[in-house]
Design a protein around this nucleic acid. Structure first.
Length: 210
DNA sequence: AGATGGATCGTCT
DNA sequence: GACGATCCATCTG
C-alpha cells in the first residue's frame, strides 16, 4: 500500500477530507473497462459519537469492519438491493469514513449507460446509482486499500468547485437533533449530478466548476 | 416539480 | 422478522 494515499486520508478531520474530495476523480477498473468521474457529492460520518454512522457507539460487525481499517481503505456495504461506496479515514481503529454519493461521469460513459436504466443526469446522481453505473454486483472490493483495489482516487489533481455547500445528510433518522441536522453533506453547488438537486439550481454553464 | 409507496435483500435482533 | 446512509414509477398539482 502506498503511504501517500494513507497519509492523505489521515491528514485532515473527516469532514474536511469530504470537502477536499470534491472535484477529484474516482475511477473503477471494471471487467467491462475503465469507468469514473469527478466527485461532486460526499458525506462524512464522524465515528462512534455520530448517531448516523454505522459505527455509532463503536458498533462493530462483520459487515462494517471496513470502517475500522486505516484511512484509504474501502468500505462497501449493501442495503436493500443496492451497494454503497465508502472510504475509511483516520488511523486504524478509528471508525470514521466518507460516503461518495455522486459523480459527474467523465470516463466510460458508454459502459455506464449500458449498466443503468436511467440516463442523462440520472446516470450517477446517487450513491447506489453510481455503483450500478460501475457495474458493481458484489462486495469483492470491500476491505481492500485503495492502492490495492480496482478503485482509485487521483490525488495529484483536482477540479476546483466554484462553491461548496454543506447540508444535513440524506436519509438519516431524525433521532438525534444535532447529528440529524449537522451539515456533513458536501456538494459542488449547481452541479447537475448532485442528488436531489432542484432543476432551478443547476448551473448548466459551468456545472459549478471554476 | 414535489410527494408517495412498492420493490427487494443482506444483515442484525 | 424487521429494517434501512435507495431507486424509480406513478400519482397529483
Amino acid at each position: 500500500m502506498n503511504q501517500t494515499t494513507t497519509s492523505y486520508f489521515q491528514s485532515l478531520p473527516t469532514d474536511e477530507l469530504a470537502k477536499d474530495l470534491l472535484g477529484r476523480t474516482l475511477t473503477y477498473q471494471s471487467p467491462q473497462g475503465l469507468v469514473g468521474g469527478l466527485i461532486v457529492e460526499t458525506e462524512s460520518y464522524m465515528g462512534p459519537t455520530d448517531f448516523a454512522a454505522h459505527s455509532y457507539n463503536n458498533r462493530r460487525t462483520n459487515s462494517n469492519e471496513g470502517l475500522y481499517k486505516v484511512g484509504g481503505s474501502i468500505y462497501i456495504y449493501a442495503q436493500r438491493q443496492y451497494f454503497f461506496f465508502d472510504i475509511a479515514t483516520q488511523e486504524a481503529g478509528n471508525p470514521e469514513g466518507i460516503l461518495i454519493r455522486a459523480i459527474e461521469p467523465t470516463i466510460g460513459l458508454d459502459i455506464m449507460n449500458q449498466n443503468r436504466k436511467m440516463h442523462g443526469f440520472e446516470l450517477t446522481n446517487g450513491p447506489a446509482k453510481m455503483m450500478q453505473a460501475f457495474g458493481i454486483k458484489d462486495k469483492s472490493e470491500n476491505l481492500k486499500h485503495l492502492d490495492d483495489s480496482q478503485f482509485k482516487i487521483d490525488l495529484t489533481k483536482r477540479k476546483i468547485p466554484q462553491e461548496i455547500i454543506a447540508t444535513p445528510r440524506i436519509g438519516v433518522k431524525q433521532q438525534d437533533e444535532f447529528w440529524a441536522n449537522a451539515p456533513f453533506r458536501f456538494i459542488v453547488d449547481g452541479n447537475p449530478y448532485v442528488s436531489r438537486i432542484k432543476k432551478a439550481e443547476i448551473d448548466l454553464q459551468n456545472f459549478g466548476w471554476n
